[in-house]
Design a protein around this nucleic acid. Sequence first.
DNA 1: CTGTGTGCAAACACTTTGCAGGTGT
DNA 2: ACACCTGCAAAGTGTTTGCACACAG
Lengths: 139, 139
Amino acid sequence: MDIKSFLGKHKLRHTESREEILSLFAKHNAALSQPEIEKSIHSCDRVTIYRTLATYLEKGIIHKVLDDSGSAKYALCREEVCRKTHYHSHDHVHFKCNLCGDTTCIDEVYVTPFILPEGFVIREVNVLLQGECIKCNRQ
Amino acid sequence: MDIKSFLGKHKLRHTESREEILSLFAKHNAALSQPEIEKSIHSCDRVTIYRTLATYLEKGIIHKVLDDSGSAKYALCREEVCRKTHYHSHDHVHFKCNLCGDTTCIDEVYVTPFILPEGFVIREVNVLLQGECIKCNRQ
DNA sequence: CTGTGTGCAAACACTTTGCAGGTGT
DNA sequence: ACACCTGCAAAGTGTTTGCACACAG
């Protein structure tokens, strides 16, 4: 899918920074943080990366991924997920490998709904599994 | 339970900072971050709080609580939980209220085991539910 | 007395903000 | 042409480290 028209669909201007950051997300399977993006992309300023992430987050193009690494990580929203519900319900599982450090979205795993005591309202569900991923286990 | 002997049991010296920080955790139901502890305790240095948290974490007295607030939060381990398994398996649910900002441990809710594709090994399960808590909903 | 804990200073890492100038449409 | 995007500088916030001194056991 063409990035230029994708950005247009979200009423965003097509710029080099946005193109590069978005295609970096598309290439990478794992969630990315600003510091990680900065290491891969040298053509734009650090602040631009922060602002682009904020913009993409606002437009529902990426979502925040919980992580204990100290810096916020983000991952591309699957088109289907974003279309399904208006309130971004990213109720899928994230897996963080303690060996390679990658955090990836696992879409195949079903999250059993949580039942809380009456009075609680759940708006968002975040599941982070930590352990060793299939890639590291094979090496 | 007496804090002095509790610390002794973990082979830790009894000091004023440790006493204060531990009793703050005991008093509070919600998870605490270093900045929050610093606001409550003025008798010790900021760095001492970080180091005490690191020590308690190492000894399994507290555990890390996932949160999107930008600063790491910690909560007391329930005695029973820590005794049950040697590898701290804090497979309980955390609930963060978007109104009051408190993150609390919900021990009553059962977490259905997650089944991942072969090759993945799960060492830790973290569930963070976000929404509105019972306290805020009633006001 | 000895090893551990603490305070202070400083550095480091991540993130946000203001402003002037550049660019996409 | 205009609104929006970017770079630079600076400041704000959270966290770690080194070293000398203090104190618990």
